[in-house]
């Protein structure tokens, strides 16, 4: 029984840790399907995390924070699109540049606005997304196995965890069952085919990158206003790169790869080690 409980708790923790990775990996997959490599997932998440925390602490609303997070991430992905799509710039360089700018900009703005050495004030109450207890969770929680799984594993997460779970089938549907998805898949495989079909490759890629930005925005918001309670510098700690690796594969069948990697429970010890990008703080 003990092993069962430990397993459930471990899975429960996995959900929490995997949420931003799943969202960011879906984001990375979308841009890659559209034929744009986006190593700026990291920067978009970090920017969103900062914007969300800053707005949440100023307005007192986590939801406004989420919107700000998404807006920040969308702005960054538009920048990426502007560089790579409109001006045909190098995609890796653009992603790197965005990551570095955001890594510097977030503590700079945080330092100037909140005077807390680059972090944002701790978030309380409605400034954060708190856990949701699903209906009947308390009532059936005592039923062995099923009730326990429902109460401990399924119930009791914040709204963004459920959003991430819902995002998986939604993204799959959009990609494989809609006009937009067909076009996105086509533009990644052969942009000329899309062009000659009378569809603007540029606009299509902008749209696909907007989806990437949207998903990254949610992922980043999760870090600072749901999983954590405020923004800390470099709090993405390499998750963007991890998600990129998860979504990356040459032959386009990348989605299978996501799941094993994303579902890895990352012990805190290693997460600390992912701090590499924190090179910036050692200047």
């Amino acid at each position: 029984m003990e092993i069962f409980e430990v397993t459930i708790l471990l899975l429960d923790a996995t959900f929490r840790v995997a949420t931003p990775l799943v969202l960011a990996a879906l984001a990375g997959m979308f841009s890659e399907r559209a034929g744009v490599v986006d190593i700026g997932l990291e920067g978009k998440m970090l920017g969103a995390a900062f914007a969300a925390a800053a707005v949440a602490t100023t307005t007192g609303s986590a939801w406004l924070g989420l919107m700000a997070g998404i807006a920040a991430s969308l702005a960054l992905s538009s920048l990426h699109a502007y560089a790579c799509v409109t001006h045909n710039g190098n995609q890796v360089v653009s992603g790197m540049a965005i990551n570095i700018v955001v890594a510097g900009l977030t503590p700079t703005l945080g330092f100037a606005w909140f005077k807390l050495g680059g972090r944002t004030p701790a978030l309380n109450g409605d400034e954060r997304f708190s856990s949701i207890t699903l209906p009947f969770a308390d009532a059936i929680g005592n039923i062995p196995v099923i009730g326990y799984i429902y109460a401990e594993l399924i119930s009791g997460h914040n709204i963004i965890v459920y959003m991430a779970a819902a995002a998986v089938p939604i993204v799959a549907y959009v990609l494989f069952r809609t006009r937009f998805g067909l076009r996105v898949r086509a533009v990644g495989e052969n942009p000329h085919a899309v062009d000659t079909a009378g569809i603007s490759v540029e606009i299509l890629r902008y749209k696909a990158l907007a989806v990437t930005g949207f998903l990254c925005g949610i992922a980043g918001t999760y870090l600072s206003t749901a999983h954590g309670a405020g923004f800390i510098r470099d709090m993405t700690a390499g998750k963007g790169y991890l998600a990129l690796a998860a979504s990356y594969s040459e032959n386009g069948s990348q989605s299978q790869l996501c799941w094993p990697v994303c579902s890895l429970p990352l012990p805190t010890r290693y997460r600390r080690d992912f701090r590499v990008l924190n090179y910036l703080s050692s200047v």
């Binding site: 920048l79 502007y82 560089a83 790579c84 001006h87 045909n88 710039g89 190098n90 360089v93 653009s94 790197m96 540049a97 965005i98 990551n99 570095i100 700018v101 955001v102 890594a103 510097g104 900009l105 503590p107 700079t108 330092f111 100037a112 050495g117 680059g118 510098r233 910036l280 703080s281 200047v283």
Partner: peptide
């Protein structure tokens, strides 16, 4: 009002303009 991360912002912007946006 400026902390040491400002340097990183400048660097990032230089990479952005001279690298990613070189065709602008």
């Amino acid at each position: 009002n400026i902390n040491k991360e400002m340097v990183i912002v400048i660097q990032g912007l230089i990479i952005l303009f001279s690298g990613a946006l070189e065709n602008m």
